Lab assay of single mutants.
Amino acid sequence: SDYEVNVNGIHHRFHNISEELIKFIEEALRRGEDLREIIKKVRELLG
Rank of each mutant, 00 (worst) to 15 (best):
S1L: 15
S1G: 08
S1M: 15
S1W: 14
S1R: 15
S1F: 15
S1C: 08
S1P: 04
D2V: 05
D2W: 10
D2I: 07
Y3I: 03
Y3T: 01
Y3H: 04
Y3E: 00
E4V: 09
E4Y: 06
E4G: 02
E4N: 04
V5E: 01
V5I: 14
V5K: 01
V5G: 01
V5R: 00
N6P: 01
N6Q: 10
N6D: 11
N6V: 14
N6I: 14
N6G: 02
V7G: 05
V7F: 05
V7S: 07
V7E: 06
V7R: 04
V7K: 05
V7C: 06
N8C: 07
N8M: 04
N8Q: 08
N8L: 04
N8D: 10
G9W: 00
G9S: 02
G9F: 00
G9K: 01
G9Q: 02
G9V: 02
G9T: 02
G9C: 01
I10G: 05
I10D: 11
I10L: 12
I10Y: 07
I10M: 13
H11Q: 12
H11G: 07
H11I: 15
H11S: 15
H11V: 15
H12M: 05
H12W: 06
H12V: 14
H12S: 01
H12F: 07
H12E: 06
H12D: 05
H12R: 01
R13A: 15
R13S: 15
R13M: 15
R13F: 15
R13D: 14
R13E: 15
R13G: 15
R13T: 15
F14P: 03
F14S: 00
F14Q: 00
F14T: 00
F14I: 00
F14C: 02
F14V: 00
H15C: 04
H15Y: 08
H15P: 15
H15S: 11
H15M: 06
H15K: 09
H15L: 07
H15Q: 15
H15V: 11
N16F: 05
N16D: 08
N16M: 07
I17W: 00
I17D: 00
I17Q: 01
I17L: 10
I17F: 02
I17P: 03
S18R: 04
S18N: 11
S18P: 07
S18T: 11
S18V: 03
E19H: 13
E19D: 13
E19S: 13
E19G: 11
E19N: 11
E19C: 03
E19T: 12
E19I: 11
E20F: 09
E20D: 13
E20I: 09
E20P: 08
E20M: 08
E20H: 09
E20Y: 09
L21Y: 05
L21G: 10
L21C: 09
L21S: 07
L21D: 05
L21Q: 09
I22N: 01
I22F: 05
I22P: 00
I22C: 02
I22H: 04
K23I: 12
K23V: 13
K23D: 10
K23A: 10
K23G: 10
F24L: 11
F24H: 08
F24V: 09
F24I: 09
F24D: 06
I25V: 08
I25P: 00
I25F: 03
I25N: 00
I25W: 01
I25E: 00
I25Q: 00
I25R: 00
E26W: 04
E26Q: 12
E26I: 11
E26R: 08
E26L: 06
E26F: 05
E26A: 07
E26V: 10
E27W: 08
E27Q: 08
E27F: 10
E27H: 09
E27N: 11
E27I: 09
E27V: 09
A28E: 15
A28F: 08
A28P: 01
A28R: 09
A28Y: 08
A28T: 05
A28H: 09
A28W: 12
L29Y: 04
L29M: 10
L29Q: 05
L29K: 04
L29F: 06
L29V: 13
L29P: 00
R30E: 14
R30G: 12
R30K: 11
R30F: 14
R30L: 12
R31Y: 10
R31Q: 15
R31G: 09
R31C: 05
R31A: 14
R31N: 14
G32P: 04
G32K: 06
G32V: 03
G32F: 08
G32L: 05
G32R: 00
G32Q: 10
E33W: 14
E33F: 09
E33Q: 09
E33L: 12
E33C: 06
D34C: 05
D34G: 13
D34L: 09
D34I: 06
D34S: 10
D34Q: 09
D34P: 13
L35H: 03
L35N: 02
L35Y: 02
L35Q: 02
L35R: 02
R36I: 13
R36T: 11
R36D: 14
R36P: 12
R36L: 14
R36Y: 13
E37A: 10
E37N: 10
E37V: 14
E37S: 12
E37W: 11
E37K: 07
E37R: 08
E37H: 13
I38M: 04
I38L: 10
I38E: 00
I38D: 00
I38C: 02
I38V: 12
I39V: 10
I39M: 03
I39Y: 03
K40P: 04
K40F: 10
K40A: 14
K40Y: 10
K40T: 13
K40G: 08
K40V: 12
K40D: 14
K41S: 12
K41R: 11
K41Q: 15
K41D: 08
K41V: 12
K41G: 07
V42S: 01
V42K: 00
V42H: 03
V42D: 00
V42N: 01
V42L: 07
R43M: 15
R43S: 14
R43Q: 14
R43L: 14
R43H: 15
R43T: 15
R43C: 06
R43D: 15
R43W: 13
E44W: 08
E44I: 07
E44C: 07
E44M: 06
E44S: 06
E44K: 08
E44F: 08
E44A: 07
L45Y: 09
L45N: 08
L45Q: 12
L45K: 08
L45H: 12
L45F: 09
L46R: 08
L46W: 07
L46V: 14
L46N: 09
L46M: 14
L46C: 10
G47P: 09
G47E: 12
G47R: 05
G47L: 13
G47F: 09
G47K: 06
G47M: 12
